[in-house]
Amino acid sequence: MITLDLLAAQDGLRHGFFTRADGVSAGILAGMNCGYGSDDDPANVTANRARAMARLGLPAGALTTVHQVHSPDVVTVEAPFPHAGAPRADALVTDRPGIALGILTADCVPVLFHDPQARVIGAAHAGWKGAVSGVLEATIDAMTALGADPTRILAGIGPHIGRDSYEVGPEFRDRFLSLDPAHHRLFRPSTRDGHWMFDIGAYVEGRLRTAGVTQVAATGLDTLAREDLFYSYRRACLRNEPDYGRGLSAICIT
């Protein structure tokens, strides 16, 4: 489990970006696969999620996740809900102690939020589609509705595909430049002609800061490059593997 000092220093808060170590899944999903959307045995996923919660000192039932769909939609959680009843969304917020908000990723950017004064937390799944459509700003707005203030919010950016690993085509770059020409800073030429390397972490951090969040920290870890620690959708695609695991990021007020 990886933590960030920015969040770890806060009283009454627990968080973690979980690696694939010490899980029960096997094969290409070996380790702590926490995604029911994979072809893993659901019993393995349940056991892995329970192990993650135990590392946070919480019961297995504290974990609450959504059915992620690369949207800007946010759920305000008042009580944990079972996986079978999970709404379609890509972020969660709460002001209730004992609820662990969880996000699943395999290259996308997990972001954990906390306003220590209002004691409001959030968790967002920021793939490029969700980030472009406003999932980060929507999470901040939902936290604000619970009493948070963007100027007090702390944001922790977890492991995600790094700039040296995220190759994209010209149409991808053109889409971002059409949104803002300044986005050219997010791209550098690839070794492959006509392709570019994209810094999604910098894009996410930029959107957080534009939204008024000034206290941002990041793990700086690349999910594709670190197979020993993380699952990666891009890695699975490059290898023509039929499936991939999902890593968990979680945050909880105690």
Score class of each variant (00 low, 15 high):
D95A: 15
D95G: 15
R96W: 01
R96D: 03
P97Y: 04
P97F: 10
G98N: 10
G98P: 08
I99W: 11
I99N: 09
I99F: 09
A100Q: 09
A100R: 07
L101P: 04
G102A: 15
G102S: 13
G102D: 11
I103R: 03
I103F: 00
L104K: 02
L104R: 08
T105P: 02
T105K: 00
T105M: 01
T105E: 01
A106E: 01
A106G: 04
V109W: 01
V109S: 07
V109G: 01
P110S: 03
P110W: 07
P110H: 03
P110L: 06
V111H: 11
V111G: 06
V111K: 04
F113R: 03
F113S: 13
F113T: 00
F113D: 09
H114P: 01
H114W: 03
D115M: 05
P116L: 12
Q117Y: 13
Q117A: 15
Q117E: 15
R119H: 15
V120S: 05
I121E: 00
G122S: 08
A123D: 00
A123G: 12
A123Y: 01
A123M: 04
A124Q: 02
A124Y: 06
H125I: 00
H125L: 06
A126I: 07
G127M: 01
G127R: 01
G127F: 04
A131E: 10
A131G: 12
V132W: 09
V132I: 15
S133N: 13
S133E: 14
S133W: 11
V135R: 07
V135C: 02
L136T: 05
E137D: 14
E137W: 10
A138V: 04
T139C: 14
I140F: 07
I140Q: 09
I140N: 13
D141I: 06
D141Y: 03
D141G: 12
A142F: 08
M143Y: 11
M143A: 11
T144M: 05
T144C: 14
A145V: 12
A145Y: 08
A145G: 12
L146F: 11
L146R: 11
L146T: 08
G147T: 09
G147S: 04
A148H: 10
D149C: 04
